[in-house]
Design a protein around this nucleic acid. Structure first.
Lengths: 171, 171
DNA sequence: GATGTTAGTTAGGGTGCCCTAACGTTAGGT
DNA sequence: ACCTAACGTTAGGGCACCCTAACTAACATC
């Protein structure tokens, strides 16, 4: 039924995935990434990263320069790009489709990126591509969703719109 | 940029939310919930729950019978229903719209339910309601999404469909 | 060459969340 | 009355993740 334990069934922990993505994004943007840069980007102390990157180095995903600039091995880069891909897809869906405010979308995408499977990610990609490629459907959807949101969603007042299970709990 | 730390900005931890939801669901389904029942449902040992429920009791969200049957206070039930609502909405979206297999949808909804904001949840509710109430849009969407999925999504082969940022990373 | 900044490390501490092992209490089955 | 099973608790341990404090190493600047 619930089958909990909050286990992510990837072989990297959420933080490790986050570290990989941040290294990749920093290197893409500035060309380099040192431990301190990473710390500033992730709002985490260098001490945390110094220890936290160790398993990634041990597994041959992250390495460093003679000057201690961080490097991604091919395997590390592949994983980093996967995480980044999940992040971008989620952020785009939340912001561009659901119209969640940008800051919220980015924040939640950061959290959710570690939980969604490849399958789910690809379904969302399909969804985004469909809306983009099929102008008729895309325009119709955006117009109707917009109108619907204005008439119903904003106030959360429609407690009995018809969908019993989806009715928000009473305040 | 990233602003990480994986902090959920609710005042309950993910596990605590999970416990509340499970109590509520067990009580809805069987009329009662003991600690051991909860443990079986959540796949967690009684020892974990015995300690883990303490903060919820201290905060007046969970209580127990003279027979040690677990009870939700009004405040606890309100929170439990909120978590359940997020869960149901996510599961429905993943399964009914994105067509993610049911087991996957349930598993991921369990994880994501602790990360999505109320705003995002309500946007998804709007989305689901819109598809249900607007037959024209709903039917069109389902037909096109289905066709699109068959032609493009299944193999993940469409690496250069046009959406640069959404292209899955190379294998 | 002393000074101060920046980078990275180690040591020690704390929280969340889970486990096993050992123990008491309560309720049936015979 | 006795044994067993099921329930719940405590004690002790472990992992993931973060912190502060106290170093060392490299560096520019005066």
């Amino acid at each position: 039924m619930l089958s909990g334990k909050h286990t992510h069934d990837r072989d990297l922990t959420p933080s490790q995935e986050h570290y990989l993505r941040a290294i990749w994004e920093l290197r893409s943007k500035r060309g380099y990434a040192r431990l301190a840069d990473l710390g500033r980007a992730l709002e985490v102390t260098p001490a945390t990263l110094s220890v936290g990157l160790r398993p990634l180095e041990a597994r041959g995903l992250v390495a460093h320069d003679d000057q201690r600039f961080l490097l991604l091995t091919p395997a590390g880069e592949r994983l980093a790009r996967e995480v980044h891909h999940r992040y971008v897809v989620l952020r785009s869906f939340l912001h561009d489709v659901l119209r969640v405010p940008e800051a919220t979308a980015e924040h939640e995408a950061c959290l959710i990126e570690h939980d969604v499977s490849g399958t789910t990610t690809e379904r969302i990609v399909d969804f985004l591509k469909l809306l983009e490629q099929d102008r008729e459907l895309g325009d119709l959807f955006r117009a109707r969703f917009d109108a619907f949101h204005r008439s119903c969603g904003q106030t959360r007042a429609c407690t009995d719109c018809g969908l019993a299970c989806l009715t928000p709990p009473p305040r």
